[in-house]
């Protein structure tokens, strides 16, 4: 290979810029339509039903990020390529960020609907508790990583842990909460394909919102991977020469 331009992680720039433009336009439209669009007037929910546009995509983004993270962990176990470990780590980080936002927005929403007038912020609803357990499992991933110093061991052990972690995701978010009485909507039947759970007018905001937040998660993930890769390059990567001191400093 030539002696230049191989420090940076190869990124499909046109794809990245395209997604970035789409995300900015779509999310701006989602915010405007989310505030001003008409929604069904329901008791208890009232105007808070608009939270659907913002709260639910957090969880879809978390799910996508955990799957991406597990995919790269599996690839890391096969190839041992450093970049796979970095990708797995950064995807898990994005999953934690979106999951944290999801659980906090869910708490605020529940406080003023399910628990209105009671002052209760957290009542161990199965859906909330299981989501919290999932976040703890992914928090454990980072604790585990920090506990191991040797990069190869750290990558391998964390990757195995990550594969177990992603298996718990559908159980903790979907299967277990459905086996228990929960106040969270979407517990019965198949909400994704139901014709009655979501008003038609809201679908035109909700689906673009989900796609746009997924895109936003991907943008943030790509940024973080590029930064992590740069940091590796600065710290003298395996097989590469020591970085030369900068000429002017």
């Amino acid at each position: 290979m030539s002696s230049s331009a191989h420090t940076a992680l190869p990124v499909r720039r046109r794809l990245y810029r395209g997604v970035r433009g789409l995300v900015v336009v779509t999310l701006t439209g989602v915010v405007v339509a989310g505030f001003l669009g008409t929604i069904p007037q329901l008791d208890i929910l009232e105007q808070s039903a608009r939270n659907l546009y913002f709260h639910v995509p957090m969880w879809f983004s978390l799910m996508a990020a955990t799957v991406v993270s597990a995919y790269h962990s599996a690839r890391y176990l096969r190839s041992g390529a450093r970049v796979r470990d970095l990708r797995a780590r950064e995807a898990a980080r994005i999953a934690l960020i979106f999951g944290g936002l999801g659980i906090v927005t869910g708490m605020v929403w529940a406080r003023f609907t399910w628990y209105e007038g009671t002052g209760v912020w957290w009542n161990f609803d199965p859906k909330q508790s299981m989501a919290a357990v999932l976040l703890l499992i992914y928090g454990g991933y980072f604790v585990l990583r920090d506990a191991i110093d040797a990069p190869k061991d750290r990558g391998r052990i964390a990757a195995v842990y990550n594969l177990f972690a992603v298996v718990t995701m559908p159980f903790l978010l979907y299967i277990l909460p459905r086996q228990m009485p929960s106040l969270h909507p979407g517990g019965e039947g198949s909400p994704a394909f139901s014709q009655t759970d979501l008003a038609p007018a809201m679908r035109w905001v909700f689906y673009p919102s989900v796609l746009a937040f997924l895109g936003l998660a991907w943008l943030l993930y790509t940024q973080r991977v590029r930064l992590a890769w740069l940091r590796e390059a600065v710290r003298a990567p395996d097989g590469a020469p020591e970085p030369e001191p900068a000429p002017h400093r």
């Binding site: 191989h6 420090t7 940076a8 740069l230 390059a233 097989g239 590469a240």
Partner: peptide, 16 residues
């Protein structure tokens, strides 16, 4: 990030 990548590519030539 773009700028950092360009600078590092210039400063750390990587021969493989």
């Amino acid at each position: 990030i773009d700028r950092l990548e360009r600078r590092l590519d210039r400063d750390i030539p990587k021969d493989e």
